[in-house]
Write a protein that binds this DNA or RNA. Structure first.
Length: 278
DNA sequence: AGCTCAACCTGGCTGC
DNA sequence: TGCAGCCAGGTTGAGC
């Protein structure tokens, strides 16, 4: 279920158990993820301490002694703290042990990633996977008036549909397919509108909608943080109640017009043709 | 540079 | 029930 809110909640959930801990063991049950998990990951990580866990977009970055452990949850990844009493489940891919605490990556579709980046402190921003990401939605660069201006300037001149532009994460990161439909609905913007037609006032409204949608989802997820330390929690069940996403044919909550579903860039988009204008 | 699209992989649901 | 077909929360990399 990982869009930015789920990744952020995962980070907050595992941090208290992992930060400051030293890696004692690494097991790769199936390393065939998006990219192969480094075969020598155990050799690299054992003995290194986790100094800090950061989130950049949907990437989790574990600051270690000699570099960063990069983890991405892909479409179906779940990362949780467990103990050896918790049975290994089908699709558990990688396990990093910190004494009795086990950090397990469960990922049925194998679109996730576990990578090692040997780097000096602060260099991780230059990693090829990180460098081209848009700004963080909750950073200073995306606060106040700057947020609307940033979206406006980035969208200027672009022909691409605004849905696909926002989803690409080139301007602002973290807006996945669900919250993309939600944010555009909140902002009253038609998903097929060319990004370049975004006016400054609507850009400001969109920026606020993005931040509001994501922060409400994080808040909703935060209430289930306790689930992250046992094997029984069901991450994903805390997803924000949606106003547009996955509501094809159901009445718009604002005007009762049936919500439409279309495909853009191989992904489903949901919107209200009356409330959202081009 | 901007944009589109296939591809990676497994499981769950729908409809015949 | 069985099975084929379609869909799913992400992102890269090839090709125009």
């Amino acid at each position: 279920m990982p869009e930015l809110p789920e990744v952020e909640v995962t980070k907050q959930g595992i941090e208290p158990y992992i930060q400051g801990q030293k890696v004692t063991d690494v097991k790769i049950y199936d390393g065939r993820l998006r990219w192969p998990v480094p075969k020598n990951l155990a050799k690299i990580l054992i003995g290194q301490k986790v100094h800090q866990i950061k989130r950049r977009g949907k990437y989790l970055l574990f600051r270690m002694d000699d570099g960063h452990l990069i983890i991405h949850l892909g479409m179906t990844g779940v990362l949780r703290v467990m103990t050896s009493k918790d049975e290994l489940k089908k699709h558990d891919r990688v396990e990093i042990a910190f004494g009795k605490k086990l950090l397990r990556l469960h990922d049925p579709r194998k679109f996730g990633a576990v990578l090692w980046s040997p780097d000096e402190d602060g260099e991780i921003e230059k990693h090829p996977l990180i460098a081209k990401l848009g700004v963080e939605p909750f950073s200073d660069e995306f606060s106040g008036d700057r947020a609307g201006h940033l979206l406006y300037e980035h969208a200027k001149g672009r022909q691409i549909a605004i849905k696909q532009w926002l989803l690409s994460g080139q301007a602002v990161v973290g807006v996945g397919n669900i919250y993309c439909s939600e944010s555009l609905f909140m902002a009253g913007i038609h998903p097929e509108m060319p990004a370049g037609k975004l006016t400054l006032p609507r850009a400001k409204k969109l920026a606020e909608s993005v931040k509001d949608t994501l922060s409400r989802a994080i808040k909703a997820g935060g209430s289930s943080l306790k689930d992250f330390v046992d094997s029984h929690g069901d991450p994903g069940h805390f997803m924000l109640q949606t106003k547009a996403y996955d509501r094809a044919g159901l009445p718009c909550v604002q005007c009762n017009t049936p919500i439409k579903q279309i495909t853009q860039g191989q992904r489903s988009t949901y919107f209200c043709s009356k409330c959202q204008k081009k």
